[in-house]
Design a protein around this nucleic acid. Structure first.
Lengths: 170, 170
DNA sequence: TTGGAAAGTCAACAAGGCTGACGTAAATTC
DNA sequence: GAATTTACGTCAGCCTTGTTGACTTTCCAA
């Protein structure tokens, strides 16, 4: 198997990494890696009455406490009916609290309850553990490249969303 | 969750890239990037009577012509009933041909028809175009890191599958 | 010849997407 | 102050793609 190498020297930058063959490997790597990426939370959620959609909602509410429904909608990229089904069960089960807005009373601000935080932590601990193992095995330079390629792969609008979140967290 | 500063690691290698904060960014990057990753084929398939599951089947049959149903099953990680539904429509529509095995006549060997190759090419062209743009923007070093981290993120069994495919293609 | 693997089928169901229509309250605009 | 827009919720129905379970047919191999 031919390897592109990182180029013999800074100047002679080979374009071998752009062959269809290399691109195909990247595509398949994304496919298989994403399975691993979701496997651990999925396993935890299996058996509970929740699924991946609930995980995503918990994650982003945890990330941006007090976010509005509309905001969450645009981050998750689903319809309000779809999100509502998920949100309703989380609220009913006491994992999420929906607070009427103070300035704008039409808005609902979403926050995790302690119980919601518990589940979120359980899920993200599992997901982070895998990510940590992968990062550690790959090393900081690889991680940097990983992030760079992923960002370049996003749709421009999603990239903006991602960067907003990214900065908000730091 | 407290995180270490610069680790006392060998060679003065910082462990800052392993903080929960960094890991969270990686997780969110995966989430948003995967959306971009599937967006173009999804758009093409929308309107046809096919979906992402059909795309995956076409991809791997194209990759490994003559593969058996069982083999495809283990690559895709779905049940035979689920795959069968997809496969049946593809066969009915003349995109995939199912050939009875010569040695083992219980097996069905799957190959794409010219019509199937057409659609597969259309889909993978779109997906490769995005991947190529991302690779080009990120550069060969980043791409190397990208692939390294993705491989480290896979379940061991899936990694073996991936590597088998990877070598088979080169 | 018989057990079991491979493939396929039917039925039923669930998660999680989607559209369309409708209702309500609050904010904004005219 | 009335009309419109916005934010949210909900009902109803549909689609894709996953699941289990039960069953049959084919056919290799012990």
């Amino acid at each position: 198997m031919t390897e592109p190498g990182t180029g013999p020297g800074a100047g002679g930058e080979s374009l071998l990494f752009l062959t269809d063959e290399q691109l195909r490997k990247g595509i398949e790597a994304m496919f298989f890696a994403y399975r691993g990426f979701t496997a651990d939370p999925d396993r935890i959620l299996d058996g509970m009455d929740y699924g991946r959609a609930h995980h995503r909602a918990l994650h982003f509410i945890h990330r941006a406490p007090g976010t509005t429904v509309n905001n969450l909608l645009s981050i998750l990229g689903v319809t309000k009916q779809s999100l509502n089904r998920v949100l309703r069960t989380l609220i009913e089960d006491g994992l999420v609290e929906s607070r009427v807005g103070r300035q704008d009373k039409r808005e609902r601000h979403l926050v995790l309850t302690p119980k919601g935080e518990d589940l979120e932590r359980q899920l993200s601990d599992a997901q982070r553990a895998r990510m940590r193992a992968a990062y550690r095995a790959a090393g900081p330079v690889a991680v940097q490249g990983f992030r760079t390629v992923l960002e370049a792969m996003m749709d421009p609008e999603l990239r903006r969303q991602y960067q907003t979140l990214k900065e908000a967290g730091a």
